[in-house]
């Protein structure tokens, strides 16, 4: 299957009716830029019907690796070629979660200014949680980035009782602030 472009979507359970869960992986190439490597951060937000994070416990990242409902968990050490991975047990996601948004941002605590335009490559992919078979991957989302410091990568969302994946590639120049504001995450 050809890589998914920005905005493209796929009905996961139409392709794989027995799909119980997925692994969302992010593979980035910083070109050896250490500040980028150290500060790129994956953030996963379980979003309710109102478009906001269900609760602070429904935001998954390095300091909170598992969502409150246990459906979503970030791996401390990604497997395979990915730099960061999140497992989602689709069957365990509460009904009040309408979508799950995956984003990356550049942490701003190091005192060094960087942006996502410095990335050489940024690809996301989806694996079957059961067995690890690859389902889909994206085009290079780094293309066209410049001063962005946060990026919505993709989202899993429900439609007609089925889970779908949409590749986003939507950037913010306001970093984590922008993401937090959009999804009601308190800083």
């Amino acid at each position: 299957m050809s890589p998914m472009a920005k905005g493209a979507n796929i009905a996961l359970q139409r392709e794989l009716p027995d799909l119980q869960g997925v692994v969302f992986g992010v593979d980035w190439d910083t070109g050896g830029e250490r500040v980028l490597d150290d500060n790129l951060t994956l953030l996963t937000i379980l979003v309710g019907q109102n478009g906001m994070a269900l609760s602070p416990d429904h935001v998954v990242y390095f300091n909170q690796l598992v969502s409150a409902d246990l459906s979503t968990a970030q791996l401390q050490q990604a497997l395979g070629g990915d730099d960061a991975q999140v497992e989602v047990e689709l069957t365990a996601v509460p009904d009040d979660v309408s979508r799950i948004v995956f984003a990356i941002y550049l942490s701003e605590g190091s005192g060094s200014s960087r942006n996502l335009g410095q990335l050489k490559r940024l690809v996301v992919r989806l694996l079957n949680l059961d067995g690890g078979a690859s389902i889909i991957s994206s085009v290079d989302l780094a293309e066209g980035l410049s001063a962005e410091t946060a990026l919505k990568l993709a989202e899993l969302y429900r439609l007609g009782g089925q889970w779908k994946l949409r590749v986003l590639g939507v950037g913010y120049s306001s970093g984590l602030h922008g993401l937090a504001q959009e999804f009601g995450v308190s800083l």
């Binding site: 602070p56 935001v59 300091n63 909170q64 942490s107 005192g111 984590l176 308190s186 800083l187």
Partner: peptide
């Protein structure tokens, strides 16, 4: 809360940051 200022007095010397506040950006 975000944006709040808090004098840390002798009677109120402690503040617990949330997980997100403890992990976002820098202090």
């Amino acid at each position: 809360n975000a944006g709040e200022r808090r004098p840390m007095t002798e009677n109120e010397p402690v503040v617990e940051l949330t997980r997100m506040q403890s992990a976002a950006g820098g202090l």
